[in-house]
Deep mutational scan, measured.
Amino acid sequence: MTEYKLVVVGAGGVGKSALTIQLIQNHFVDEYDPTIEDSYRKQVVIDGETCLLDILDTAGQEEYSAMRDQYMRTGEGFLCVFAINNTKSFEDIHHYREQIKRVKDSEDVPMVLVGNKCDLPSRTVDTKQAQDLARSYGIPFIETSAKTRQGVDDAFYTLVREIRKHKEKMSKDGKKKKKKSKTKCVIM
């Protein structure tokens, strides 16, 4: 069974824990209790493949930012979460993405942009803004509501699919490099 290491990042209060708990335990946590770091595991079937999701729910508070490099190193894919009623959390996505790329030393890291709290009427981040940002990053965008469960499975499952595509691409690139290195030079 394939294991996928997913990391949920975003500013404090955007609903990272609520999304994760909704996926794992099928219930909505409405009281806000700032996370330092929590880890969850769940076995699911995605596109006919049974897999184990190892999900790291991270601290959004700035005082825990020193811990970010460590979990970013171990993560295979990242859910970059903002709240649709919090423009600052949307603007912060850029910083999370840049930090992930720096730590992973790669421009090509599996990510999904997630606009959470889409059940709320007080939207300050337009869907088109988020779609445009995701398009500019070359990553999928999904709106979710941890409260109603809308888009929750889709967000995590899409990230797994992005990781699969990335692994497939990397193995193809690896095979191309191996083929090239088999060419021999004969000096007579």
Results as ranks from 00 to 15, higher is better:
residue 2 T to E: 12
residue 2 T to F: 07
residue 2 T to W: 03
residue 4 Y to S: 07
residue 8 V to R: 00
residue 11 A to P: 09
residue 14 V to T: 07
residue 14 V to C: 11
residue 16 K to L: 03
residue 20 T to D: 11
residue 21 I to N: 15
residue 23 L to R: 13
residue 23 L to Y: 10
residue 24 I to D: 14
residue 26 N to L: 03
residue 26 N to F: 02
residue 27 H to P: 05
residue 27 H to F: 08
residue 28 F to E: 11
residue 28 F to T: 08
residue 29 V to R: 12
residue 30 D to P: 11
residue 32 Y to A: 12
residue 33 D to S: 10
residue 33 D to R: 08
residue 33 D to A: 09
residue 33 D to I: 09
residue 38 D to T: 05
residue 38 D to W: 03
residue 40 Y to R: 12
residue 41 R to F: 05
residue 42 K to A: 08
residue 45 V to Q: 04
residue 47 D to P: 05
residue 47 D to Q: 05
residue 47 D to V: 02
residue 49 E to K: 06
residue 49 E to T: 11
residue 49 E to S: 05
residue 50 T to Q: 03
residue 52 L to Q: 14
residue 53 L to K: 01
residue 54 D to F: 01
residue 57 D to S: 10
residue 57 D to H: 14
residue 59 A to T: 13
residue 59 A to G: 13
residue 60 G to F: 02
residue 61 Q to P: 11
residue 62 E to R: 07
residue 63 E to V: 04
residue 63 E to Q: 08
residue 63 E to P: 10
residue 63 E to R: 05
residue 65 S to I: 05
residue 65 S to V: 08
residue 65 S to N: 14
residue 66 A to G: 09
residue 67 M to C: 09
residue 70 Q to A: 04
residue 72 M to D: 06
residue 76 E to G: 05
residue 77 G to A: 11
residue 77 G to Y: 04
residue 78 F to D: 00
residue 80 C to G: 02
residue 80 C to I: 15
residue 80 C to L: 14
residue 82 F to A: 12
residue 83 A to L: 01
residue 84 I to T: 15
residue 86 N to K: 02
residue 88 K to H: 15
residue 90 F to A: 03
residue 94 H to V: 13
residue 97 R to Y: 15
residue 97 R to I: 15
residue 99 Q to I: 06
residue 101 K to V: 02
residue 102 R to Q: 04
residue 102 R to H: 03
residue 102 R to A: 08
residue 104 K to C: 07
residue 104 K to G: 04
residue 107 E to V: 13
residue 108 D to G: 06
residue 108 D to N: 09
residue 108 D to I: 05
residue 110 P to V: 02
residue 110 P to W: 01
residue 112 V to G: 00
residue 113 L to M: 06
residue 114 V to D: 00
residue 115 G to Y: 03
residue 115 G to A: 13
residue 116 N to M: 15
residue 117 K to V: 14
residue 120 L to C: 10
residue 122 S to D: 13
residue 123 R to P: 13
residue 125 V to F: 11
residue 126 D to S: 11
residue 126 D to T: 09
residue 126 D to Q: 08
residue 134 A to L: 02
residue 135 R to M: 08
residue 137 Y to G: 03
residue 137 Y to N: 05
residue 139 I to E: 01
residue 140 P to L: 06
residue 141 F to D: 01
residue 147 K to V: 12
residue 154 D to E: 14
residue 154 D to A: 12
residue 155 A to D: 00
residue 156 F to C: 04
residue 159 L to I: 11
residue 161 R to T: 14
residue 161 R to S: 05
residue 164 R to L: 06
residue 164 R to I: 08
residue 165 K to W: 01
residue 165 K to V: 04
residue 168 E to A: 10
residue 168 E to I: 05
residue 170 M to D: 10
residue 170 M to E: 05
residue 170 M to I: 13
residue 172 K to M: 09
residue 173 D to F: 02
residue 174 G to E: 07
residue 176 K to Y: 04
residue 176 K to N: 09
residue 180 K to S: 15
residue 181 S to C: 07
residue 186 V to N: 15
residue 186 V to D: 15
residue 187 I to W: 09
